[in-house]
Each structure stands twice: as structure tokens, then as C-alpha cells.
């Protein structure tokens, strides 16, 4: 693959688990792929599908949505709703063949600094392999 390609990944992290996990990864000086721009949201259920879609259509090469593990959401059920919305959006992108693999949903708890770095690094690697997002370069989009 093109070694010059530096992916541009957007990460929506929930405040109570995944953002704290990211914080832990940072303060533990773990190696984290720098291509991820983090956006902190109060809960994974705050993420309207349009936020993910506009990221993807406006130029992100990948979008990561991360929240608390099932059962652990600070608002009890937010991540379950988020998962359904995510599943719907991903299915639509699949049906339309619009780069569904550029979306990822992961559960990362506040104590999982290591897991955070692994999720991000693996996803970044996957996106680097996939190359630039064709949607972001299509003049019709």
C-alpha cells in the first residue's frame, strides 16, 4: 500500500468509559496511532448517525465510535441504543456499498488503556491498508 498515506480517523468517545480509557492509555505512555482525532461525547447514544455520516462524507478515512461495555453505560442503556443505530447505519452503507468497513464500534472501559491503544492501532492499520476514502474525493458527494 501507499506508504505516504496518513489516514485521518475520527473517534467519538464516550466521556465515562472510552475517553477515560484513552486518558489512561495516554498517561501510561502507551503507543497510540496519532491519526485519530478524538471527539468527546457524553454517551455513545449521543451520536446521531448524521455525525458519523458527515465525518465519512466530508473527509474522514475512518470513524470509530466507542463507549462503555454493554451493561456499564453511565446512563444504563445508552450503548444498547447506540449499537442499534450503528447497526442500521452500517447496514445502509453495506446495502449502498459505501465503504461500510470504515466504521467501527468498540466497547472500551475506563480501565482498559491497553485495549484502547490496541483498538485504535488495529483500526488505524486497517484504514491505512484500505487507503484513502473514495467518498471524500468524489466531486459528486
Amino acid at each position: 500500500m501507499d506508504t505516504e498515506f496518513k489516514p485521518n480517523i475520527v473517534g467519538f468517545l464516550c466521556n465515562w468509559c472510552s475517553y477515560a480509557g484513552a486518558d489512561l492509555a495516554g498517561s501510561s505512555k502507551m503507543e497510540i496511532e496519532p491519526s485519530l482525532s478524538v471527539i468527546r461525547v457524553m454517551c455513545s447514544s449521543r451520536i446521531n448517525s448524521n455525525l458519523v455520516l458527515s465525518s465519512l462524507l466530508w473527509g474522514a478515512d475512518g470513524v470509530l465510535v466507542a463507549g462503555c461495555h454493554p451493561g456499564d453505560c453511565h446512563y444504563e442503556r445508552g450503548n444498547y441504543y447506540a449499537r442499534r443505530r450503528f447497526a442500521l447505519l452500517k447496514k445502509i452503507l453495506e446495502v449502498l456499498d459505501l465503504e461500510p468497513d470504515r466504521l467501527q464500534l468498540s466497547w472500551i472501559s475506563a480501565s482498559e488503556g491497553k485495549r484502547y491503544s490496541e483498538v485504535v492501532n488495529t483500526f488505524a492499520e486497517h484504514i491505512s491498508q484500505a487507503g484513502p476514502n473514495s467518498l471524500a474525493h468524489n466531486p459528486k458527494v
Binding site: H69, P70, G71, D72, Y80, R83, R84, F86, A87, K90, Q104, L105, S106, W107, S109, S111, E112, K114, R115, E118, V119, T122, F123, H126
Partner: peptide
């Protein structure tokens, strides 16, 4: 509680320290 497991992608071979996951 248990559905759409296939949309969660923790990344190949990743360990999760969370029992419930």
C-alpha cells in the same frame, strides 16, 4: 442485551479485560 454482536469490532485477536464483553 445480546444482539448485533457482529457490528462490534474489537479488532482481530484483541483481548478484552472485561468479563461481560
Amino acid at each position: 442485551e445480546d444482539e448485533f454482536g457482529d457490528v462490534e469490532t474489537p479488532g482481530d485477536g484483541l483481548e478484552t479485560s472485561h468479563g461481560e464483553a
